[in-house]
Amino acid sequence: MSPKGKTRIRRFSPVQRLFHVLLMLSFLTQGATGLSRMYIETSWGKGLASVFGGYESCLTIHKYVGIFMICWFLIHGLYLFFKIDWRQFPRSLFGPDSLLPRFEDLGQAIQHVAWMLGIDRLLRLDRWGFLKKLDDFLLRITRLPPLNRVSYLKEFDGLLSVITKPPRFDRWGYWEKFDYWAVFWGIPLLGVTGLIMAFPLFSTRFIPGWGLNVVFWVHRIESILAMCHVFIIHFFIAHLRRHSFPMDRAMFEGSVDLAAARHEKPAWIARLEQTGKLESQLVAEATPGLRALFYIFGYAAIAVGAFLLIGGLVNSPSITW
């Protein structure tokens, strides 16, 4: 069906991949410099700070990289502005290719959780005689005549079949949308609070000085949230689960395996096939050298993230909160 050698389907454009790589590098730098200042009382924090040249230069790097991140966030906003299909303006925002949340995402999340809990297998319990046992039990306690029993069994079965339909994801799953919007809320929050603290004399012309106490905690907890989310959840989803076990190369290579995508995102592939756009989206796999580079880069990021997460958790009791 697909042309020879073209086994993968395009998912991210080069600009989007560039955004992701820059976000990775700046996020890890911000995490390392920020944590080294937060943990400067411990030997772990001192060692981490010495990588960047000590306590003071950590702050300098943190500020410049933060301003760099804010600039890239603004450029990303411009990119979105030009990326929107303005001809079909309102409708294009709610399409399946858009990252904006839809009502369907909520339903899919519920279906997905039901799938994880194995409720779809509950239907197969019928084969094990589970429903029969339930039926006998109910007969014993209620003494309903057999005619009525058929109807409630059918209702129970119908209810289960609604919940147990496995979700048919389109291009973006709800967790991927959450990942995107988490960064979208996190960068402005961290950026604004960071700018307030970076220029305290200017910002206290507008807010009282005790506002800095408040802003400091917002910055701190939001950064902990961001790091926990990336180093635990995002890394798990992109590396450890079976679908993407060694590493999901989609964000570096720009494409995913067609068979895997057909399995995980069936509605996306079906839609492309219906509209006849599938052939144009197929690409070949990257060269082995390039793939090795992706793996090295991805696992370096994992190593840094794991180091920061474990070091931060282990040393958290010994700092002044």
């Binding site: 959780v113 194995g118 959840i233 689960r241």
Partner: peptide, 12 residues
């Protein structure tokens, strides 16, 4: 999201 990803991993 932590139980969510653990459950995804186990189910897959």
């Amino acid at each position: 999201f932590i139980p969510h990803s653990v459950m995804v991993g186990l189910r897959e």
